[in-house]
Write a protein that binds this DNA or RNA. Structure first.
Lengths: 337, 337
DNA sequence: TTGTAGGCGTTATCAC
DNA sequence: GTGATAACGCCTACAA
């Protein structure tokens, strides 16, 4: 790889002039500029971004720290972040934490060690709690989850409202014993539990602690939790889960128990995935604008990089209730008749 | 962020000594080592990786260039790559190309500009064809797709064999008019088409050009292609697709046409996804060990980084046929009776 | 308008 | 065993 020095020699100028031609382009004689450009062309010169980063103390790399890229919610966000990053000349460092506090810490350190321009982060509750005490020399945009006392840009869903709406939908469709599975490590899970409980109270449906489970956001965990709920002496007549992975597990559990939806058991959850409308009956969910969330997060971050002192913005989005056969008795009747 | 210089001052030694303590650890008096470590601790010193990379002309970053992280095949590979990378102290740069030759070129340039340790790449046929002419100062591991005349490590599926087996399975189940949808930009699609045609010929089933479609690996493209096939005067009695995105689109098209599987039309494709076993009937597929593919690719790359001159290895894996209700008439009969 | 020179933070070579 | 010092490639005051 040719360096700026070699270009300078080839063009018979100093490295400063080459640099000027390539950056500002100001204050250079056309003739000299031409010579430089020719040399650049001939040598196939490209500025070394590592050297540039060392010199400028910044970079065009965005860190994206999520719990698991295989969670469709984060898959979609990642794609959006990468799209925006690419369009703006940034690059994306992908980090999976598995909801593991230790990995989160290691990756945050890595970000410090590499001059990242900023990060997009979806932390566990535990790490979120300590964020306010830490110092960062780069901006952080929170996605999906906030951190207490930590002033930062954020893109969030109104989780309490969404879960309230989803639960109310189940109640309105005649379901009263609603088993629920929430993520145990994220604030999101907690907020959705709040919305769930609010809805129950509001409609005078008893809150049964046994019906509430907390798990990792994984298919097997969801299946295990759902199976346990289905084995309860007083079996729930509906299942609600707080993400698409546990929803998938819950559906597997329902199938394994040979129960029919929604006659034996209703099912509802969060996040649109390919299969929610391909299975029969289709599954009721709260859909989140995942691509939009990632897009906004990346835009907020890039704006903040450009203008570090602007006031933090929190973008709060609403989920869309997609009522479908898995939880709507009337629809099923219609299908049968 | 404290620099090595500040640590040196605090410990009353030179930067060279600090560097020695932190890297080799050789040839340093215990007493001095202790002082240095104390200073490191006290100042919270962490080596700046950008400076290190500039100096050493290498880095711990692996580039991962795929067409779309949302394709479950690549999602899983990405996760595996990141896992291995993390375990070995590497970091992953995520790049989506959308099968766009231009984006591929830009990302390859970026890799050159940033001292990456190596890349894992799944190129379009067009870019693959030009790979042999290019010079790279970092190793490349190919996943899913090879490049002609380009000697490199690779992790591949025996696509011809897999498609042959899948097609034969359809033929053996009594399907003779098999519409097929292949990826148009990848070698993979081409190879699977070969296997498909071989199977037809072998079993004296006519190869009907109209039944063969080429599309982008996207849901909508798959749906459109499948819809077109279903509108043919001589409607196919089976649909075969070459990836999970087009498979999803094909299923949508079948549903939209109110056809029943497999009575009206059979369906089969590639890649295990959550929904293939959740829909009814379950979908017949060739399953690829996606996580394994990513894992092996990352391992090959890291080994090559450590030993640049080792002979290239090509790992060829076989797909597993998962025969299910969408293509097996006997199974369906059993279900009905 | 152009060149010189210093420094970003490391590591490695060479003296001592 | 330890310390100067010189790069790695780039950018940017400052001088000319």
């Amino acid at each position: 790889m040719a360096s700026i020095k070699e270009v300078a020699e080839a063009a018979g100028v100093s490295t400063a002039t080459v640099s000027r031609v390539l950056s500002n382009g100001q204050h250079v004689r056309p003739e000299v500029r031409r010579r430089v450009m020719e040399a650049v062309e001939k040598l196939g010169y490209r500025p070394n971004l590592v050297a540039r980063s060392l010199r400028s103390q910044q970079s065009n790399t965005i860190g994206l720290i999520v719990s698991d890229i295989r969670n469709p919610f984060f898959t979609s966000i990642s794609r959006a972040v990468e799209d925006i990053a690419y369009a703006q000349g940034f690059t994306v460092l992908l980090c999976n934490t598995d909801e593991d506090v230790n990995k989160e810490a290691i990756y945050l350190q890595l970000m410090r060690d590499t001059n990242v321009a900023g990060i997009i982060f979806s932390p566990t509750r535990q790490t979120a709690a300590s964020l306010a005490q830490q110092r960062f020399d780069f901006p952080i945009v929170m996605v999906d989850r906030t951190a207490p006392d930590f002033e930062a840009d954020a893109v969030l869903l109104d989780n309490v409202e969404a879960a309230y709406r989803l639960t109310t939908h189940l109640i309105n469709n005649g379901f009263g014993r609603i088993g629920a599975i929430f993520g145990e490590t994220s604030l999101t899970g907690l907020e959705r539990q709040q919305g769930y409980e609010q809805a129950l109270r509001q409609h005078n449906v008893p809150v049964v602690p046994e019906y509430i489970r907390h798990t990792q956001p994984r298919v097997e965990s969801g299946k295990a939790a759902a199976s346990a709920l289905l084995r309860l002496p007083q079996q729930p007549d509906a299942l609600l889960t707080s993400n698409s992975l546990t929803l998938e597990g819950a559906l597997q559990a329902i199938r394994a128990a040979h129960l029919s939806m929604p006659a034996d058991i209703a099912l509802a959850g969060f996040d649109e995935t390919p299969w929610t409308v391909l299975v029969q009956p289709a599954i009721t969910i709260i859909s989140q604008p995942t691509y939009e969330i990632g897009k906004i997060a990346a835009e907020l971050l890039i704006q903040r990089i450009a203008e570090p002192s602007r006031p933090p913005r929190q973008v709060m989005l609403r989920g869309q209730l997609r009522a479908r056969g898995s939880s709507t008795r009337s629809l099923v009747k219609r299908e049968i008749s």
